[in-house]
């Protein structure tokens, strides 16, 4: 490794050297996968939020004169067993799933960053207590807990569901942040700040968190996809979003049994789900490469 580093070109010292932000953006755009992913995600968001205005049909209103119709000019994605428009339902479900995914990713990443950085920086009992909590929460697959609690939350709606998902989704990230903090804490710039008399929380805010931010950004991105998958899985088994609300998960649950005969009831929702998560993962991968200064895609 040292020999390779030895030959690395000297750092740019000209005044025109690009800032870090621009550098990341350039590298991100250079990665075709990430660009494609970003475009797909944007289009899906557009579809989810503009879609309901494109169709005259309401997602909830049944129409007993048009039952299980295949896709047509009138009903783009066909209709279901009680004549509801599948397109209207799908975009509505997509919207809910996306919002849930985003919120869960945001909340759980915040929690993970905070807990991980504190555990790592303060060490001692704070660290041990927090890590015991992490281990405790990791013992049960989160699905078990969410499924047990979910009947109680019937009235609280999907926001409670978001909180629940976020609450069981931060532990592994927190572990990683903690171990990164442990090594950052011994880094000389953090030591320097300590010896200058900078207060602990200020050090966490100004030195630790910015230096784990690449990881957190990547992780948050991937978590959006993961949260959407959890949401659909739980909703599929009736533990997540509940009727009359729809999400991709409830749509899949409703369409499963009829999939072999009436494929439009199942495959539109399934396709959008896979497409969205795939696009998110592509962005995450591109971000990983762009933010990691050691990775270099340009050398074959």
């Amino acid at each position: 490794m040292t020999a390779v580093l030895d030959t690395a070109p000297a750092e740019p010292k000209s005044p025109a050297a690009p800032g870090r932000g621009r550098l990341v953006l350039t590298r991100l755009l250079a990665a075709r996968g990430a660009t494609a992913g970003a475009v797909i995600v944007l289009l899906l968001f557009l579809l989810a939020f503009a879609g309901p205005y494109l169709t005259p049909w309401d997602y909830a209103t049944p129409n007993y004169t048009a039952i299980r119709q295949p896709p047509s000019a009138e009903h783009w994605f066909g209709t279901n067993g009680i004549g509801q428009d599948v397109f209207a339902q799908t975009v509505r479900g997509l919207q809910k799933s996306l919002v849930i995914g985003l919120l869960v990713a945001l909340l759980s990443t915040l929690l993970a960053g905070l807990v991980g950085a504190c555990a790592g920086y303060f060490g001692g009992w704070a660290d041990r207590a927090l890590m015991f909590l992490v281990d405790l929460l990791l013992i049960f697959p989160s699905f078990l807990i969410i499924a047990i609690v979910s009947p109680k939350l019937k009235g609280a709606g999907w926001l409670a569901f978001v909180l629940l998902l976020a609450l069981f989704n931060w532990m592994i990230t927190a572990r990683v942040v903690r171990s990164m903090t442990l090594s950052l804490r011994e880094r000389e710039f953090v030591r320097a700040a300590r010896y200058m008399g900078v207060a602990p929380f200020r050090i966490i805010l100004r030195h630790i968190l910015p230096n784990v931010s690449s990881f957190l950004i990547i992780d948050a991105t991937v978590t959006v996809g993961g949260a959407v998958m959890s949401e659909t899985a739980l909703s599929y088994f009736g533990f997540g979003v509940r009727p009359p609300d729809v999400s991709l998960g409830t749509l899949l649950a409703a369409g499963t049994d009829q999939a072999p005969v009436f494929p439009w009831l199942f495959y539109f929702a399934a396709g959008l789900l896979v497409l969205f998560v795939l696009a998110i993962n592509l962005i995450g991968d591109g971000l990983r490469d762009a933010l990691d200064p050691t990775s270099d895609r340009s050398t074959p």
Binding site: A259, F266, A270, V274, L278
Partner: peptide, 22 residues
């Protein structure tokens, strides 16, 4: 692996089952 990572397990299972039914 990217495609597989983008599918919840229950969806993979459903795809496999639908394939078997087909």
């Amino acid at each position: 692996s990217f495609v597989l990572l983008s599918m919840p397990v229950f969806l993979v299972a459903l795809f496999l089952k639908n394939g078997a039914i087909a």
